[in-house]
Design a protein around this nucleic acid. Structure first.
Lengths: 341, 341
DNA sequence: CTGAAAGCGCTTACAG
DNA sequence: CTGAAAGCGCTTACAG
């Protein structure tokens, strides 16, 4: 790899002028068109790229973005992988590297996020599960000039730190509204996200469908196991229900499998809607209708915001609008040929 | 963050001596015990850490390992996430950063793997799906002094580049042997990994169980959809079978779901074994017995080998031994309470 | 129009 | 025992 000095020596000019021409930042330096062309040609010819390390040491761009992720989503949802991939691709487009670190507690974060970090990255992304105890640290990093963007489902950071979330209320609303349109009137809910529940209740209300308190069930978590517990309790309660809206695909998948195993045929299943539109929805014995969490789109927005902050623009938290993906768990006509007849 | 210079100024010594004491590499430099202690105390007190950028520019350690991953495994298997997480944790333990890049073709790899890369990383990991067309490039990187370790299931790289794989033959053998021990005698195979098939056939042979050619089915890929196609063909062929061993959990899961949907009760299902022990196995309507691919262990080995190469040790390719994880798809006694009765 | 010089934070021969 | 000096590859005032 050629250095500035080598190019300068080859051309019989100073490395100063080569540097200025290469960077395009001429400052007070002037150069004749002839030598400028010669330098440009040479740069092209040897494929010169300034040494990143030297740039960074000089106080310029580091060429890296740090991503700190507290893994979220249930096992098998691939939400973390999707997020990382999308961030990575987005950064690669801009010739930036991705510096990745997983953490699960304040200590791990602080350890990885040493003062040294500031020397090595141009921006910081924090995602997955929010840690309010870290806001102080984040604020101080931000104040020292580091662009920071969070990607939590819901903006729970200090308001000064922009967050790319998902419209949780609308997720709940989409699920509820879809089931109502399917003709369901006794919809059970397995929920652990208050905002989603608000949206769900709003869908009932605006359609004039009564809400049966006993069908609204708060679950402990988003896992398949949590789903089995919830559906078992519901079935044993002898409450009638014609649909289940669950806060994750794993929960919803557990409902389908539980009922199939208890002898319900797939035709007699209640309508079921999951959340996240993860692989779990597609690998379910009855493919699940699900509401997206827009992971890819959010990841791309995160990188976009990071750049806007770098450009001194004023950025604010945003909530991406989710979509409904309809599959056979609410629409029998979508049952694949394998499972017909 | 204090610099060498500042510490030197505070103590009224030269930064040379501070540098030597800090690094522990005294070279030809001597220092009195008194000033050594003073310097050490000061370093401790201000928590001095040498600037990574300066170190790297000087030609020392960069503090990063580059990971290039061509994503593998079926959607939902979480194999990539598990690999990345394990690599990241393993590197973090050694205070190294993880530089991550996904690629899908030679062009993307070469683009990301520019000469600049060499300035920025201490080691390279290549994983997922092997690209034989890249071996030349890898060899030349290796010859220029960059430690490289691959993590493909099967060593397919140039023999000079160490690979951390999994013992594919043993995977096939474990599945076959387990089904034979379960009493199965007409075992169908959905396979696309020749080595695994060899191991499977060996298990039949050593148990004296006949192999029925018509039950050995090569599938196009590892996906759920591939599994539906394969089991549909098998069922329509009217061949009798009492077990299915499949080369992925998605394939195996499709078998379970297909048969349940066709009206088989979970008690009448053939015995089924998947591969990879991924979340898909645990989210299947009948939880799947599966053979591990030891992703975490392999990732840790990769980092270990990378360090050994750095230490000029002679390292060779290894194949990690897989394990069998038994669940209800081959052992009815493991059926969870939810699904009993 | 062009280049010598200082400096980013470090390391390491080398000279006192 | 200790420090001045050169240098890693760059940038950017500043002086000619």
């Amino acid at each position: 790899m050629a250095t500035l000095k080598e190019i300068a020596a080859d051309l019989g000019v100073s490395h100063t002028v080569v540097s200025c021409v290469a960077s395009g930042r001429m400052g007070t330096t002037r150069v004749s068109e002839a030598t400028r062309q010669a330098i440009l040609a040479r740069i092209e010819q040897v494929g010169f790229q300034p040494n990143r390390l030297a740039l960074a040491l000089k106080g310029g761009k580091k060429g890296y973005v740090g991503v700190f992720l507290h893994k979220h989503g249930t096992y098998g949802s691939e939400m973390n992988e999707e997020f990382i991939t999308a961030i990575s691709d987005s950064l690669a487009e801009r010739s930036l590297g991705l510096w990745l670190r997983f953490f699960t507690c304040e200590k791990e974060f602080l350890q990885a996020c040493s003062t040294r970090l500031l020397q090595e990255i141009d921006g910081l992304v924090l995602a997955g599960i929010p840690h309010p105890e870290l806001f102080g640290k984040l604020r101080s990093l931000q104040e020292s000039g580091l662009p920071i963007v969070c990607a939590f489902p819901q903006a729970k950071t200090a308001p000064e730190i922009p967050n790319v979330g998902v419209d949780l209320e609308h997720q709940g609303w989409l699920a509820g509204n879809h089931l109502i349109e399917c003709g369901c009137r006794r919809i059970a809910r397995f929920h652990c996200h208050p905002s989603r529940q608000i949206g769900f209740l709003r869908s009932l209300e605006s359609a004039g469908v009564p809400c049966h308190e006993a069908l609204m069930r708060v679950v402990n978590g988003f896992t398949y196991e949590d789903g089995l517990i919830a559906i078992d309790e519901l079935v044993r309660s002898d409450m009638k229900f014609d649909a289940v809206s669950a806060d994750s695909d794993a929960l919803a998948s557990a409902v389908v499998h539980y009922m199939l195993r208890k002898g319900y045929s797939s035709e007699n299943l209640p309508k079921i809607v999951g959340n996240d539109d993860s692989p779990i929805a597609q690998h379910c014995a009855v493919r699940l209708t699900s509401v997206t969490s827009e992971i890819r789109l959010r990841a791309h927005s995160v990188v976009k915001l990071l750049f806007e902050i770098g450009d001194k623009k004023n950025v604010e938290s945003i909530a991406i609008r989710p979509k409904l993906v309809v599959r056979e768990s609410t629409d029998p006509s979508l049952t694949g040929s394998w499972f017909r007849g």
